[in-house]
Design a binder for these strands. Structure first.
Lengths: 252, 252
DNA sequence: CGTGCATTTGACCACCTTCAATAAAGGTGG
DNA sequence: CCACCTTTATTGAAGGTGGTCAAATGCACG
């Protein structure tokens, strides 16, 4: 690996070690049951899903799946944070999304995974075989409907992200991102209103917003100087002027 | 409208005039029946959809729906080309996609449309009330499954587009776009292999790729000088070196 | 053949990137 | 618990890709 490309390859995933598997999830008591696609299933129905799902725990910065691999499984996140990304041949990376408890990935794939997934924090996953899950849709129509509904919402969000990537300036991108993360992180950690939690690195943020680490860092400094945010030591951030931030995020 | 923003607003849609509506589509003979979501429906089932759908014909550059409007309908395209777009408050525009016969829009919406849709060419549409269509999913499970499948594919494609918007250079963006359009236009018009059809303006291409018209135009010139393409007078383009184009599109 | 719009081309500029150095944070072993 | 090292983040200076502004050319249509 040449030093020129080092910045892009960011090899901060050590491999597929450090993961533990436990059999046949007890979906009935799953911490994510009521915030995930499984929320539509009653006590009888949840058993059907329980029979095909496995629990997996992974440490920080582990690879869950790699772009191009045969897409055998769909993963539901129970605890932690996962990043989904795609790469160009020379190592340029685009992060497609940061996923939190209740969200899933591995659906939008043909034969192989169309993206890579890596843990950002220690993560508990629910692993379901894709084909088996898809077959259950006829037996559990409400689940299929729910998955469609979630996918619709997801598609809508990616449209917002396309607007961000194609048309927003660096400062607008960062403000939009912080607002999104505030909404998401309020669901996860119970933190103060006007605080937010950023478990990912500057490099991850940069690759999510189509910027470089340096630009992200500079924008953080600018927002701090303008008293719109204050850095409370990683990974905590205070929002001092939410109104101003929303205006900037929307494009003035 | 100030001259400063004129380039952004590109008010090339005259309004909602010039459209004709005909009642209760004869879906059985629909030209898009076998290339759209309806392809999964048999002779009995198609009648159910037929009962809730209307045919609409619109001239070039007409508004079909506007971001924020109450999302009453889902539209299936039977003939023509439609652009889907989102705007920032100051008029910066991002085109989310160009849609061709067999494709639909209006699904990924909550209460209001999350994007605007306008015709690029003369267009025949099939208009279905969203709520009624969604209700049919329980009666026609295969349709719901098909819509999910299409939406999954769509989501996967938007991920590719995020990689393009966030990480590709202007030249790579244009080559990727031309390849996409070659695939799509081969489905629509029966034109020579290694030819492609671009019904949209430079301004549309720019707003789709997160660039300006000038940059798009310059890249067209560069690709022409490098003998990768040749402009056969709008809207036809010859691809002279497909291999080279694919390499550039993938990021070298 | 002239008008109006889209596209191309040119000159200059700005935002973001690149390259580089420094500072801060985190992790490991003594 | 602190010294040492690695990794990550910040800051600075210089450069480039693509944007802005402006003019010219091409093209369709009356």
């Amino acid at each position: 690996m040449t030093s020129m490309n080092e910045r892009h390859f960011t090899p901060n995933c050590v491999g597929d070690g450090y993961s533990s598997v436990s059999n046949a999830g007890s979906c009935e008591q799953c911490v994510a049951r009521h915030i995930s696609m499984c929320s539509v299933l009653n006590e009888n129905e949840i058993g059907i899903i329980s029979s095909i799902s496995k629990n997996i725990t992974k440490q920080t910065k582990q690879i869950i799946c790699t772009e191009g691999d045969t897409a055998k499984y769909l993963y539901n996140i129970k605890k932690g944070c996962v990043r989904i990304s795609k790469m160009l041949v020379d190592g340029r990376r685009q992060i497609i999304g940061f996923l939190f408890p209740g969200e899933f990935f591995g659906l939008a794939c043909t034969n192989g995974y169309s993206y890579s997934a890596e843990t950002i924090t220690e993560t508990d996953l629910c692993q379901m075989p894709r084909t088996q899950l898809f077959q259950k849709f006829s037996e559990l129509p409400s689940l299929g409907q729910k998955v469609l509904e979630i996918t619709r919402t997801e598609l809508q969000f990616t449209h917002d992200q396309m607007l961000l990537l194609g048309r927003k300036r660096a400062k607008e991108k960062l403000c939009s991102f912080l607002l999104t993360m505030q909404n998401k992180s309020s669901l996860v950690k119970n933190i103060e209103k006007n605080q937010l939690f950023l478990p990912m690195s500057r490099s991850d943020i940069a690759d999510y917003l189509g910027l470089t680490i340096e630009t992200v860092s500079r924008q953080f400094t600018i927002l701090t100087k303008e008293k719109i945010i204050s850095l409370e030591g990683n990974p905590l951030i205070n929002i001092l002027d939410l109104g101003r931030m929303e205006i900037i995020a929307s494009g003035e």
